[in-house]
Design a protein around this nucleic acid. Structure first.
Length: 237
DNA sequence: AACCAGGACGTGA
DNA sequence: TCACGTCATGGT
C-alpha cells in the first residue's frame, strides 16, 4: 500500500452509486463508443456529439469497427472529439482506416489525413505502431499490459481500447472522470490514475455495459462541469 | 485572442 | 518517482 494520505474524503454526499444513478436518469443511456456509421443519429444532451448506439452493447460487430474504435481512442488523446471525427472520416475516405493499409501507408498520406486531430506527426507514428501490433495480434484479445507495451498507448488509451474495442471489463478513467469526482466532492487531488480507477471499480457494477455507461456518463457530465456548475451538480447533494 | 480539448512521452532533478 | 515541457489543430 502506498504511504499516501487518503485522497477520498467521505463528505455529506450522495453515495457515489446514487450520483451515477442520478446522472443516468438525467442524461439517459449513452451507448458508447461512437462509430462513424451512426453519425447523425442519437444526438446527446450536449448536442452535436453523435455516433452512439444507446441500449445496444454488442459492439464491435466487426473487426473494422474494432479497429476504428482503437484508432479513435488514440486520435482523441488530449483532443476534442469533433476533430477526431474529421480525421477518421479522412482516413476512411482514402482507405486507411484498416490495419494493413494504414500500416503500409506513407507518412505524408497519414499525416494529411489525421491533421485535423492535432499532434499529427506523433499520432501518425502511434497509429502505425498500433496497426502493426494489431496485425500481430490476430484473433487474440490484448491484455492491458500488452497494450501498454505499445509506444503511444498509455493507461487511458489502453483501457479505452480494452473496454470498447474488445468489450473487456476494464474501467476507463479520463480527465472528465477526474473532474466529476473532484467537483462532486468524492475525492481530492492529486488524482493518480490507478487510484481513481480502483475507486470507480469499487462503486460500479462489474459488467462491461455498466463500465461503458459509467465512463460515458462521466464524459457527458464532465462537459457540463467545464462551463459552469450545473443545476444537477448543485442539487446532487 | 487566449484558452481548452475524452494523453503520452522525454527529460532533468 | 515526479514535475514540467512538448506535441498541433480547431472551437469557443
Amino acid at each position: 500500500m502506498p504511504a499516501l494520505p487518503p485522497p477520498y474524503i467521505s463528505r455529506k454526499r450522495l453515495p457515489f452509486r446514487e450520483l451515477v444513478g442520478a446522472l443516468l436518469a438525467h442524461y439517459g443511456l449513452q451507448g458508447w463508443w461512437p462509430l462513424r456509421e451512426h453519425a447523425g443519429t442519437n444526438p446527446t444532451a450536449t448536442g452535436r456529439f453523435t455516433g452512439y448506439h444507446p441500449g445496444d452493447y454488442r459492439y464491435p460487430h466487426t473487426a473494422s469497427q474494432r479497429f476504428e474504435i482503437a484508432c479513435g481512442a488514440i486520435l482523441t488523446q488530449n483532443t476534442a472529439w469533433v476533430n477526431v471525427e474529421r480525421a477518421l472520416e479522412n482516413l476512411a475516405s482514402v482507405g486507411l482506416l484498416e490495419a494493413r493499409s494504414l500500416f503500409s501507408a506513407q507518412d505524408p498520406m497519414l499525416e494529411s489525413a489525421i491533421r485535423p486531430s492535432g499532434y499529427f506527426r506523433a499520432k501518425t507514428r502511434k497509429l502505425r505502431l498500433f496497426a502493426e501490433f494489431y496485425l500481430c495480434l490476430g484473433d487474440r484479445v490484448p491484455t492491458r499490459d500488452d497494450l501498454l507495451m505499445v509506444w503511444g498507448i498509455g493507461p487511458e488509451t489502453a483501457d479505452s481500447i480494452r473496454l470498447y474495442a474488445y468489450a473487456q471489463l476494464e474501467m476507463v478513467v479520463d480527465a472528465y472522470t477526474r473532474r466529476v469526482l473532484v467537483r462532486e466532492g468524492y475525492c481530492e487531488e492529486p488524482l493518480d490514475y490507478d487510484r481513481v480507477k480502483r475507486f470507480c471499480e469499487a462503486h460500479v457494477e462489474r459488467t462491461v455495459p455498466a463500465y461503458q455507461e459509467f465512463h460515458a456518463l462521466m464524459v457527458e457530465h464532465g462537459k457540463r462541469l467545464a462551463r459552469k456548475p450545473t443545476s444537477l451538480s448543485k442539487n446532487a447533494r
